[in-house]
């Protein structure tokens, strides 16, 4: 797998999907999007992205569940997951980690921090 890394963004806010897609594409990532938890989970399984950016409050299936279903599955657990939420409460962060999320970014976010986190998670030695 050489060249572009693929990132799947799951968020029910279309505006957020659009701006984030633009930002990531400008940084040479290929971007896939999904706007609810079920679609996100399906795409993660069929498309096998290199990384997932996952909102917490999602219709159909919330972010915790999506995260848990991927992280507790041998086949998909290696895909790094960044939890992405506007809730920003310690409790959520802890819960996110228990569900196996690799990182946690609060909304509104600093683009440099998000990009740095993505780079780190994709690098992994």
């Amino acid at each position: 797998m050489n060249g572009q890394k693929r990132i799947l963004i799951v968020d029910d806010e279309e505006d957020i999907l659009n701006v984030l897609k633009f930002r990531l594409e400008a940084n040479n990532y290929e971007v896939l999007t999904a706007s609810d938890g079920q679609e996100g989970l399906n795409k993660a399984r069929t498309e096998r992205p290199d990384l997932l950016i996952l909102d917490l409050m999602l219709p159909k299936l919330d972010g915790y569940k999506v995260c848990r279903m991927l992280k507790f599955d041998e086949v998909y657990k290696a895909i790094p997951i960044i939890m992405f939420t506007a809730k920003a409460q310690q409790k959520d962060e802890e819960l996110g980690k228990e569900m196996g999320a690799d990182a946690y970014i609060a909304k509104p976010f600093e683009p440099e921090i998000l990009l740095e986190k993505i780079r780190q998670l994709l690098k992994k030695i």
Binding site: E13, I16, V19, A86, K87, K107, P111
Partner: peptide, 24 residues
């Protein structure tokens, strides 16, 4: 409410950052 406020702020901030960073 804080969640509801943060969500649109996120899009606003990122749109402005994108323009400001010269990417657009």
């Amino acid at each position: 409410i804080s969640h509801e406020l943060r969500t649109p702020l996120t899009s606003i901030k990122e749109s402005i950052s994108l323009v400001l960073d010269g990417i657009a």
